[in-house]
């Protein structure tokens, strides 16, 4: 039986040519780079033109940064184009904002080449690239939402457990083993958590707009 490997199209957006060249060199079949962009405006134009499966997108770029790319993609190509943030550090203030605005996940720039490739392939399959730090940020964010907005944590008990385990440094596989669920189920939980984050963020924005008479 022949396995048909579908080519995955990728746009790389980073204002540093060296970084773009490095990522391009690390990818290779079946990840095909269809365009490179040096700022947010170029990235959005390239995404419009190519409708790639994946965008590897720097957070800090001219013309509005990665955040603008994420927001644009979320409002126009949601579900079709996955934006993976590619940042220098996971401490960056707007990383959570980017993920909340619809980024599919993120990777730090010190991720070794083979690992970068592996995580991007997994992202295509639907597994969000994630880190303990981001999981911890999300835990804090949902608590904030619970305290401020509804008084109820939007996460289910199970989702919170998953997030806590990831924040402690467990791999999806280890989380699955500890909670007696499959790795795939853990991935599903993570995707749902991200979905809830987008929803709660959107609800918060709408409420904010209503409160301020916009």
């Amino acid at each position: 039986m022949t396995e048909i490997v579908r080519t995955t199209t990728v746009v790389i957006a980073d204002d540093h040519p060296t970084v773009r060249a490095g990522v391009r060199a690390d990818l290779g079949d079946p990840l095909r780079v269809v365009a490179e962009a040096g700022d947010a405006a170029e990235a959005i134009a390239a995404i419009e033109q190519h409708r790639p499966d994946l965008v590897v997108c720097d957070l800090r770029m001219p013309e509005g940064g990665g955040l603008r790319v994420v927001k644009e993609v979320a409002s126009r190509f949601a579900e079709q184009v996955k934006v993976v943030m590619f940042t220098v550090s996971e401490d960056e203030a707007d990383l959570l904002e980017a993920v909340a605005s619809g980024a599919f996940g993120y990777l730090t720039k010190d991720t070794p080449g083979p690992e970068l490739r592996r995580r991007l392939l997994l992202a295509v399959e639907g597994e969000p690239p994630f880190s303990p730090k981001l999981a911890a940020m999300l835990l804090g964010e949902f608590r904030r939402v619970a305290r401020k907005e509804t008084g109820r944590n939007p996460l289910s008990e199970r989702e919170r457990e998953v997030l806590q385990q990831v924040a402690r440094g467990c791999t999806y596989k280890q989380v699955g083993a500890q909670l007696f669920i499959s790795e795939k189920t853990v991935e599903n939980h993570v995707r749902n958590i991200l979905g809830k984050l987008h929803l709660s963020r959107r609800a918060e924005l709408i409420r904010w707009a209503a409160d301020h008479g916009i």
């Binding site: 204002d15 060296t18 490095g22 800090r60 220098v88 720039k109 080449g113 970068l116």
Partner: peptide, 14 residues
């Protein structure tokens, strides 16, 4: 951030 940190990250990665 725009220069040295990026460069170090690239070195680390490559």
């Amino acid at each position: 951030h725009d220069t040295v940190l990026q460069a170090l990250a690239v070195v680390e990665r490559r």
